[in-house]
């Protein structure tokens, strides 16, 4: 028995040591991030206005505006969708969500740009958010496709869009102005990736801010400040 026990204890001790060291060095990495992104923390009024422009969801007169820089081919953005939906549902009438395009194109997401065009092409027919949801839902099916346009037209059909118009708009790079502008704006804000969230013009660092739960808490706090705690 002792023959096994001591090696087991030694093995466990070495592993505990390694895990501890890895965790310590990883949390150190995370702490560096917010410091790097501080230059973008204080935005000008012009930039804050720009954050409110774009396809949006929720009450138009909401006092709290969430702006999300996202990429339809980004799995982290997809994973983040339920959180945003929850925040909107919990704060109905008080929060508006603005979508800002930040396609990580051409690398690592080769279909990020064309999927952004697809969303805006659907937007021309008033169904941006339906296509937005559809694109995330089907992400794995088109992410690495060599030409995903046929699939996008299929989704448009499923959403009840006029597919002829959709195809034409998709091929004409619908919303290119908006997408290019968002991308340039995101670059100006020194975004490190997607999703990046701004709450009333203030960047919320997902890593140091506690991820989805942290964002929910932050929004709750900002909503209470804007509307009072009683409501």
């Amino acid at each position: 028995m002792k023959k096994y026990l001591i090696p087991i204890l030694f093995t466990a001790a070495i592993i505990a040591l390694l895990v501890f060291a890895v965790r310590a060095s990883m949390s150190e990495d995370n702490n560096v991030k917010p410091a790097e992104s501080t230059p973008a923390a204080q935005l000008t009024d012009e930039q804050k206005d720009e954050l409110k422009q774009g396809q949006s969801k929720g009450a138009d007169d909401a006092k709290v505006v969430l702006s999300e820089f996202a990429d339809f081919q980004c799995p982290a953005c997809k994973a983040f969708e339920p959180t945003l939906a929850e925040i909107l549902a919990e704060n109905e009438g008080k929060v508006r969500l603005v979508f800002k395009h930040f396609p990580l194109y051409p690398s690592p997401h080769k279909n990020a740009l064309v999927s952004a065009y697809a969303s805006e092409a659907a937007g021309k027919q008033g169904k941006f958010w339906e296509m937005h949801d559809k694109l995330y839902e089907t992400q794995d099916d088109w992410a690495e496709a060599s030409d995903p346009k046929d699939k996008f037209v299929e989704y448009a059909r499923e959403l009840g869009l006029n597919t002829d118009d959709f195809s034409r708009d998709l091929n004409a790079e619908a919303g290119k102005d908006v997408i290019d502008r968002d991308k340039a704006f995101g670059t100006e804000l020194k975004l490190s990736g997607t999703p990046t969230i701004f709450v009333n013009g203030e960047e919320f660092d997902l890593r140091s801010g506690g991820g989805a739960e942290g964002l929910k808490a932050k929004v709750k706090q900002v909503v209470e400040e804007a509307y009072g705690t009683g409501q």
Binding site: C74, P75, S107, P108, H109, L206, R207, G211, E213
Partner: peptide, 15 residues
């Protein structure tokens, strides 16, 4: 910790 993970220009791992 993938909740707080994001896609960067050198992504892939998170996928």
């Amino acid at each position: 910790t993938r909740d707080g993970l994001s896609c960067g220009f050198t992504g892939g791992c998170e996928r």
